[in-house]
Amino acid sequence: MNLTLHVWRQKGPEDRGRLERYAARNIDPELSFLEMLDQLNGELIREGREPIVFDHDCREGICGACSQVINGEAHGPQAETTVCQLYMRQFQDGDEIYVEPWRARAFPVIKDLVVDRSALDRLIEAGGYISVGTGGVPDANAILVPGEAAETAMDAAECIGCGACVAACPNGSAMLFVAAKIAHLASLPQGRPEASRRVCSMTDAMGREGFGNCSNHYECEAACPKGISVKFIAQLNREYLKTLPKAATSKAP
């Protein structure tokens, strides 16, 4: 099949960037979207032009590196599928395809389709963990975790940290990402002792990193390649509400 691509090219953070047009010819529908870009890059290199830079690594939908907005949809048109798992048979011969980087203030463009997502790491650093050092822990079956709680935690923990939720959110909010981590840890007895400190510090960090506020458009859930539910945002909100009685009675630090 033959396609026309409009790809965002930007030399560096200071460059203004622009969409450039490329013809992708003789594309095998059995190729993945990224392999199609590999093929195009091969042609660009042979023509002495600069290949398109894009993040990718595992190419099996789990590392969360790939990050492209295809025709206005984060990770492209197929539901619950990362770009690396998107295959060209999802497209038609002659299609025009727009490929753009994640867009959000918290995700500045580094080059072409590559953005800086380190803000997500800093959200985890703000409290997305259980404060346990190596060693000195009880037997794994000493604290029981009801099967249902383990399932809920796992549903939330499936997040791959790709940032599609932020890219799709009209407000550039990282609520779903933070909610997934809050819900994962708050659903487990091991995570309860720190639950209130965690929800406050992680949501505080969200503002510091320049993410917007959630206004419940639920575009995040629709874009999430792992299908993480916005019910976890409600769970985050509940966890936050639970901190208020204590906050009301405690003195300023």
Partner: peptide, 12 residues
């Protein structure tokens, strides 16, 4: 705040 957090939109 939300507008500021999304300074650039998508072409499509």
């Amino acid at each position: 705040q939300n507008r500021a957090a999304k300074p650039t939109g998508y072409a499509i």
